[in-house]
Amino acid sequence: MHIIILADTHMPRMAKIWPPALLPYLERADHIVHAGDFNDRRVLASLQSFAPVSAVYGNTDGPDIKEILPEKQVVSFHGVTVGIAHGHGKGKTTAQRARDAFADESLDLLVYGHSHIPEHKTEEELVLFNPGSPTDKRRQEQFSFGELIIEEDSTWTIKHIYYSDKKG
């Protein structure tokens, strides 16, 4: 199973179309995970035209998105349990706020966004993954998103995909 992981797309303000470096990945995705900050409901609809989407809302999403998406979500792919949260709030780090949202749940992978900073680390057997942003790199050197590959036997790998130009 080929899953694309996104967060903080902030469209159409930060990009009017999907970056060319991201498009081939969306086109072959079996599923898409988005950790919030779409900014426009049409962005969700656009992603759904590529593959099924599991998503949560972020702090910059309006009522139109908050009425259709949860604040956090747990999904499972071939036995791999994935928690999704945006990670916004006050106090602590973004990763810690995301972890706290699932304090009573057993996860294999926690996907979060908010900071626009790509991160991939393991804490106490839990993999924490922030894909960064494919359209708004802020102070990062490159734009980024994630690619999660899950085999039918539940083995999986996850990595960042980086690129320098969101316009092609």
Score class of each variant (00 low, 15 high):
G62L: 03
V33T: 04
V33M: 15
Y57H: 11
A45Y: 15
L44N: 10
A51Q: 10
D37S: 10
E27R: 14
N59L: 03
V56G: 00
A51S: 13
R28Y: 12
D40R: 03
G58A: 07
F50G: 02
A29M: 02
S49W: 12
R42F: 07
R41V: 15
F50K: 07
N59Q: 01
A55L: 11
R28A: 04
D37I: 01
R41E: 15
F38N: 05
Y25H: 15
F50Q: 02
S46K: 10
G36E: 01
G62Y: 00
Y57L: 05
A35T: 02
A29K: 01
G36A: 05
A45L: 15
F50H: 10
D40W: 04
N59G: 02
R41G: 09
Q48G: 07
T60W: 06
V56S: 05
R28W: 03
D30Q: 14
A51G: 12
A45P: 05
E27S: 14
V33S: 03
G36N: 02
R42W: 07
L26N: 11
A29N: 07
L44S: 08
Q48R: 13
Y25M: 09
F38Y: 12
T60H: 08
D61E: 01
Y25T: 10
S46F: 06
A29P: 01
A51M: 14
G36V: 06
I32S: 07
F50P: 01
D30G: 11
P63N: 14
